[in-house]
Amino acid sequence: MTDKVITADRLTKSFRFAGQTVQALREVSFHVDRGSLTAIVGPSGSGKTTLVNLIGGLDNPTSGELWVDGVPVHELPESRLTDFRRRKVGFVFQFYNLIPNLSAIENVALPLEFQGVPRTRREERAAECLAMAGLPAERYRHPPGRLSGGEQQRVAVARALVHGPAIVLADEPTGNLDSAMSATIMDLLRALARDHGTTVVVVTHDHQLARRADRTLNIEDGKVRGVHERRTEGSTDCG
């Protein structure tokens, strides 16, 4: 069953800064299957972050259409975007970005707080996700500052999936980790996609890591240069 959870149609994003217009994305079109792990690769400044920000509803496209899990994200005003992020999206960032004065488990429970889930249910679910992400139980109550980079990123992954989002977006989640840890996090994300039917999109510079994805989207200069399917080992131009 090829259910398309993300569909982008001639998606364009330009920034105006100091009187100049920067075209970060130029008419990008692609789709992502539900439950797949997609890697986005490309040189620095090619528009990868811009793309995941649009998919995650952190920013509005300049033009084009973007559908995520049946929601026309390109049309949503700010108030509806909040609701969209809250229910449909999980984020993992390069620098973990945990809240420093909250414990690991409180960080993971945050998205549930914003959904208004009751306290006991939140804690249960957060502990479940931390276990899934592989954080030792005795560290649940520790603040992020006491955890290693790898442990922090496990917490961040747990936080991204705690509310059962349709898609998890990870912008260079392994950018700060050594290769062994990077592989572990990548495997974690892949297991997530495989076992829970969550769609995962990962931005990475590391082609070794990208190879673990089902599909690789190659972006250059704001355009999709190629899509690499792991199963078929084929490459199609799409741009």
């Binding site: 995650g56 952190l58 700010e78 108030s79 909040t82 609701d83 992020r85 809250r86 229910r87 999206v89 999980g90 984020f91 960032f93 970005n97 809240i99 945050l110 998205p111 914003f114 959904q115 936080r159 991204a160 509310h163």
Partner: peptide, 16 residues
């Protein structure tokens, strides 16, 4: 500011 952005990304609304 950055932390506020993160909170918003993970579901915090303006009201929160």
């Amino acid at each position: 500011a950055r932390e506020i952005g993160i909170l918003k990304a993970i579901g915090a609304g303006r009201r929160d």
